[in-house]
Amino acid sequence: MGNQKLYKGSLQTIILKLLESNDKMYGYEITQHVKELTKGELQITEGALYPALHKLEADGLLDVEVAKVGNRLRKYYKLTENGTKETANKLAEMQEFLKTMQHLVNPKFSLE
């Protein structure tokens, strides 16, 4: 819970990754899924989620579909073709970042 600031810069990558694995999702579902996957460690606030989703939509990475569910409307998001490519790039960037951080935080000394 105290690490929210560290996760802030990775919100778009998290959203893209979730949509890559789940075809289409709606806002509330994304927050619950992240909460569940991280066992409550990361809680995406609505105030950060929707502006990020709308930015990804404006950048052409997400497509939207509005459907009637019960007696209300629900907006679903799914990856576009560009979004799928961008997800792969962002995940590669993230792996690289994690590797660098690992070297910095936990350096392995060698005599070579």
Partner: peptide
């Protein structure tokens, strides 16, 4: 209107 549908849905889900 660009936010209302999903904010309403989110509050109802909560």
């Amino acid at each position: 209107i660009d936010l209302r549908v999903e904010i309403l849905d989110h509050i109802i889900s909560d």
